[in-house]
Design a protein around this nucleic acid. Structure first.
Lengths: 345, 345
DNA sequence: TTGACAAATGTTAGCGCTATCATATCAAAT
DNA sequence: ATTTGATATGATAGCGCTAACATTTGTCAA
């Protein structure tokens, strides 16, 4: 490896070679409309010949701002966030802005630390997950000298802009679907108890209670990270503790898939003996056998729209509505399909 | 939002308040061992009171280097890379280094562009995926003034350091497993034809051919992004075009899961009528019903080790061996389980 | 008490770029 | 020709920090 210090090519090298002042080169780079076409062409030729590339650090220092968009999500390995990130990157890659990403590992303290670090780099904008920041994090963000989009959830008091859906309403709709399908001995599987999961759990409990169908013994949770394995484990626990359960709401599709596999292993037929409803409608849910009922959420779209709102706002174009509700949809499939039929039979 | 420009607090503000010179503050921050304990304490008090945070751009500009580690992977939504990234972040989060991540979308040109951009920020190190960069990208990387780790694959001529496994050997082992299990009408499902996938395909073909079992009609591929859905589609195609197939190697576990679901939908029993072998041993493979045979690869470990090697090298500690082969393991499960039994029955 | 040496702190000069203001250039209008 | 008002370009002063060297302070032996 060449560790020798080839002299870095700077804007002044380009200026000298092109026979113009350094400021003209700087303008040619960042405000080309203020430089004559002839000069720009001349400069670009030199830039190509020298292989010049501007130093973003010097730029940031001199300008007092960057083209960085800071993105904070709780987890990187959770597919839900991976899809949101994909949406974010899809839009960012077509812009001049650079995404810088960090994961909080579901820790509010970590989140606060990262927010400070990011803000220090004078980002052009930030995307943060959820509405349950600590008071201090919230205070820092409200004072931040950049535009902010909160994603994944909805609330009354956005820092700036917000795009998400109501976890409570979505889980309520799923629970109602089970009830309306004729199931009455409702179970719940949940893992990774973050604020959004808790809202879904609350919705399930409230809705089941209202229908007189709440049985706390059928609620199985784990603080561990959600996964197919945990889904199998929780389902096993449910089937043993409360074998009379006739339908189970899984707080996400990983758990639902794990639950489906566990039922298959135990010879418990889905949906005849137990119905399964997932959450998020991940790709595999439609393909599983039996296909899994789930609540569709718009994860990639959340990412793209968040980024679009942010970029527009940075460029001075205020969104008509700073809070966007992407909604959700209960997608009924085989795994909750036959309750009415079998009970009416 | 407060868009007013509260004056930024700089190192000189801290120095003045603490009654020391600006350089002492700078040292207290980056080389505390060169400052007396008393002075450090005094400075830290002022830093806390003022809420000072160093400006990373100024730091980078003055020092001519950053604490950024650039990470390049082809895709963000592919679980395989998400797991590698998790490993990388796990190590990075415990260090002073900051990960900056970009995805090349499997495009060599995009990769070249991103490498240029990254290198411009004078990163402390880079992690790049694979060994199939374009000539120009390779040239740039070899000249780069930073340490580099290549991940995901293995090759003879590392830019600097390398950690991965042999895709060819792993797919060969999987194919041999099918052959040795007594299957003889071998199919292959593959999607997303990147260089590593191609190596696995080549290994399957070579190995099947050597055994006199290669049937090109049983090789079904798609250039589209790998997914459970594509797995189902390809499996459907295979079952229709070559219904005599008795075992299928899927180039990754997403495809294998899709194939399993498709077989279940069509009432084709696994492994009695067709055996399925996946690749990567994702979490769900062990849990599926029947459990999926797969080739275990060490994705998170690849991330953690890559980062550890990189950080050690940056700190001047050369690895004993710059090329690390993480190996693989064929994990035999139910989905390829009963060939010998059924054929001997 | 004095030198000698290390430890601690200070001074100075940039890093590569942009903001800001100043100046030059040029076409069109007088 | 001369004024005018844009348009294009230039000179200068930092942005906030660190490298490199310079100086001061402290510690110990003789």
């Amino acid at each position: 490896m060449d560790l020798g210090k080839r002299k870095t090519i700077t804007i002044s090298d380009v200026a000298r070679e092109a026979g113009v002042s350094l400021m003209t080169v700087s303008r040619a780079l960042s405000q080309p409309e203020r430089v004559s076409a002839k000069t720009i062409e001349k400069i670009n030729l030199v830039i190509d010949r020298l292989g010049f590339v501007p130093n973003p650090n010097a730029r940031a220092l001199a300008a007092g701002r960057t083209n960085v968009i800071g993105v904070l999500v709780p987890s990187i390995s959770n597919n839900v966030f991976a899809e949101v990130l994909r949406g974010i990157y899809d839009v960012a890659d077509g812009s001049n802005f650079q995404v810088q990403f960090a994961n909080t590992r579901y820790s509010p303290d970590e989140e606060e630390r990262i927010v400070r670090t990011f803000l220090n780099q004078k980002p052009a904008g930030m995307i943060v997950s959820g509405i349950n920041q600590t008071g201090r994090t919230a205070a820092i963000l409200r004072e931040a000298n950049c535009r902010i989009v909160q994603i994944m959830d909805l609330g009354d008091d956005p820092f700036d802009m917000m795009i998400g859906f109501s976890h409570y309403e979505a889980a309520k709709a799923a629970t109602l679907h089970l009830i309306e399908s004729g199931f009455s001995r409702l179970g719940l599987l949940a893992a990774r108890l973050d604020p959004r999961t808790e809202k879904r759990i609350a919705a399930f409990k409230d809705t089941a209670r209202s229908a007189g169908l709440l049985d706390e013994a059928k609620i199985i949770t784990s603080p561990r990270t959600t996964s197919v394995r945990i889904g199998s484990m929780l389902a096993g626990e449910l089937l043993e503790k409360a074998p009379d359960t006739d339908a189970v709401l899984c707080i996400n599709d990983d758990l639902a898939l794990g639950a489906l596999f566990e039922c298959q292993r135990r010879g418990v037929s889905v949906p005849e003996q137990i119905a399964i409803c997932g959450f998020n409608d991940m790709e595999f849910s439609a393909l599983a056998h039996p296909a899994l009922t789930s609540v569709r959420t718009y994860r990639e779209k959340m990412g793209t729209m968040a980024m679009q709102m942010l970029l527009s706002a940075i460029e001075g174009q205020e969104p008509e509505n700073p809070v966007v509700d992407l909604g959700f949809e209960v997608i009924e499939r085989e795994s909750t399909g036959s309750a009415r039929r079998s009970s009416s039979a």
